[in-house]
Amino acid sequence: YIGSKISLISKAEIRYEGILYTIDTENSTVALAKVRSFGTEDRPTDRPIPPRDEVFEYIIFRGSDIKDLTVCE
């Protein structure tokens, strides 16, 4: 799965898409590269977040912050 395009939804209901870079089982983290944030879209939340235009080089997510993770390709 390393190198695959991943769609990830955080506990804050924010969806991110990026390339799976590393999975650290010891620290329970997932790192994505070339990440875009799509905001909360239409998911119900107390704090709606708009999508962002910039592409983040890397984002490291803690396993406890991840609600859903899907391989896109």
Rank of each mutant, 00 (worst) to 15 (best):
Y1C: 12
Y1F: 06
I2R: 04
S4Y: 12
S4C: 11
S4V: 05
K5W: 04
K5L: 11
K5S: 08
I6S: 00
I6T: 04
I6C: 10
S7T: 06
L8W: 04
L8G: 05
I9L: 08
I9Q: 02
S10H: 03
S10Y: 05
S10K: 01
S10T: 13
S10I: 06
K11P: 02
A12S: 15
A12G: 08
A12N: 13
E13Y: 04
E13G: 13
E13V: 01
I14A: 08
I14K: 05
I14Y: 04
I14V: 13
R15S: 00
R15Y: 03
R15H: 08
R15A: 02
R15Q: 05
Y16I: 00
G18H: 03
G18L: 05
G18A: 04
G18E: 00
G18V: 06
I19L: 09
I19T: 11
I19A: 02
I19C: 06
L20N: 01
L20A: 10
Y21G: 10
Y21I: 15
Y21D: 15
Y21F: 07
T22V: 09
D24K: 00
D24W: 03
T25E: 14
T25D: 09
T25W: 04
T25M: 04
E26K: 13
E26D: 10
E26L: 11
N27L: 12
S28N: 12
T29M: 08
T29K: 14
T29L: 09
T29I: 04
T29Y: 10
T29S: 12
V30L: 14
V30P: 02
V30G: 02
V30I: 10
A31K: 11
L32S: 05
L32R: 01
L32G: 01
L32T: 03
A33G: 08
A33R: 15
A33P: 00
A33Q: 15
K34W: 00
K34G: 11
K34T: 11
V35R: 03
V35M: 01
R36K: 11
R36E: 05
R36G: 03
S37L: 08
S37P: 00
S37D: 08
S37A: 14
S37W: 01
F38W: 02
F38A: 01
G39S: 05
G39M: 04
G39V: 03
E41N: 03
E41H: 04
E41W: 03
E41L: 02
D42R: 08
D42Y: 04
D42A: 08
D42Q: 12
R43M: 00
P44N: 10
P44K: 10
P44M: 15
P44R: 13
T45Y: 03
T45G: 07
T45A: 13
R47G: 09
R47C: 11
R47V: 10
R47F: 10
P48V: 15
P48A: 09
P48R: 11
I49F: 07
I49C: 13
I49V: 12
P50I: 00
P51H: 04
P51I: 11
P51A: 15
P51T: 03
R52N: 13
R52P: 06
R52C: 13
R52L: 09
D53S: 10
E54Q: 08
E54W: 04
V55R: 10
V55P: 11
V55S: 07
V55Q: 11
V55E: 14
E57Q: 07
E57C: 04
E57H: 08
Y58E: 14
Y58C: 11
Y58T: 14
Y58R: 15
Y58F: 09
Y58N: 15
I59S: 09
I60Y: 06
I60E: 15
R62F: 04
G63W: 06
G63N: 15
S64I: 12
D65P: 01
D65E: 12
I66H: 03
I66K: 03
I66C: 01
I66F: 05
K67L: 09
K67R: 09
D68S: 09
D68H: 13
D68M: 14
L69M: 09
L69H: 00
L69R: 01
L69A: 07
T70P: 03
T70E: 09
T70K: 14
T70G: 13
C72E: 08
C72T: 08
C72G: 11
E73W: 00
